Computed example of a mutant assay.
Amino acid sequence: MGLTSNTVLVLAIASAVALFVGTVWLWPRLARRGWRAVSGRVGLLFATQLALFAALGLGANQSFGFYASWADLFGQEDEQGVVIDHTANRGSGGPLQVTDVRRVKETGSGRPQRGGQIQKVDIVGRTTHIATSAFVYLPPEYFQPQYRTRTFPAAVVLTGYPGTAQALVDKLHYPSTALELAKDGRMQPMILVMLRPTVAPPRDTECVDIPNGPQTESFFAKDLPDAVLAHYRVGKKPGSWGVIGDSTGGYCALKLAMHHAEVYAAGAGLSPYYKAPIDPTTGDLFQGNEELRNRADLWWYLKHEPAPDTSLLVSSSKVGESNYKDTLEFIERVKATDRTRISSIILESGGHNFNTWRREIPATLQWISGRLSDR
């Protein structure tokens, strides 16, 4: 029986209820002194608490989809995602300051020419005045003399909500994965700009230009690329920039690539959704502006706006992700357009969690690397 099976949940609840009733029924018999009675009381209390926690955990997992299987729960699910290109036959100094520097791998070489470098930076948007911190991964080639005049492609990498930029480095291992893939010749050297989409915490702005509020979409479409271009050797043409994200960041990545194809040549959404939610964390994102609400709905955008000249990647899993059916439908709708290209990673199982995204990130980095140029 699978982790997300209703049968498992019912059995866990039934076990918790049975142990509770049994504890109440047997407690008088175990009220005597002696090691056997004491051991019996301890055992019943421990078993009841364990059953209650198991039932609560299974119920929460059913509701939120953290883990898709027992192997996923115990970290044993390690099958890598594979990109399927659904449109293969259709052609193909100022605002940024570095505040800290670290190695990509603490056990690796301290020389950036061999192991690359991660820089912590503070960014202030010139037009939106949004201020946020980020981590920038620079590949070893960036520091090597023979590449001193070369520019590099860049990918903006976004967390989910609320998320932390640190998790992209320490939990999802974007820099070390990019380093190893480039060493193996499976992707070109790239700059990664890693941050969270929550640039006005604690509010979840969903990468929307909120009327009379944070202009989040403009920050990612204009201010962030301008700040990075002013400080690093990044290609200036649209084909040099991509964007990746998971969950909320995945929705943002798809939207930014679709709305701003002149900036982002490719957008990859890992476990994305396709319409901005309205809930207590977001507040009123649109202030009654129907045009803004429609643009934030990727379903509406595909139907009513000209197809953008960009490449998209979406991911889901057959068991464990709530967006599976929506993702299949999104793929079909994009395939029906005449300019937008679509690829996917569909796992057999995998919940909405770091372990699942770690399985998809290598293929995602290879995919986006193949769609960006360094000029």
Rank of each mutant, 00 (worst) to 15 (best):
L365K: 12
T216D: 05
A221Y: 02
R375Q: 13
R203N: 05
A154K: 11
L179R: 11
R103W: 00
R339Q: 14
R196T: 15
K120N: 12
G351E: 06
F220G: 00
G242W: 06
S92M: 14
T282P: 08
R29I: 11
R29T: 05
V208P: 03
R341L: 06
P362A: 04
M194N: 13
I130H: 03
V124S: 15
D338G: 09
T99H: 02
L347V: 07
I244K: 07
H86R: 10
R90M: 14
T99W: 02
A167W: 00
F74G: 08
W300N: 05
D204F: 03
Y324M: 14
Q146E: 13
P112F: 07
V263C: 04
W357C: 11
T7N: 08
A60R: 10
L302G: 11
A154W: 01
S15I: 10
A257H: 06
L158W: 01
Y142V: 02
R111V: 07
S317E: 02
L11H: 00
D284H: 04
L313G: 06
G125K: 11
D246A: 12
S5C: 02
L270I: 07
A227P: 00
T107G: 02
R102S: 14
I342R: 08
P112T: 03
D204I: 07
S344K: 02
A68T: 03
P225G: 05
S369H: 10
L158P: 05
G40V: 09
A154I: 15
S271D: 13
F74H: 15
A154R: 00
R341G: 09
K335L: 10
Q76C: 08
V169W: 03
L224I: 05
V243A: 00
Y161W: 11
V156S: 07
I342Y: 03
E321P: 08
G34W: 01
G250W: 07
Q80G: 01
P197Q: 14
S349L: 02
L45S: 13
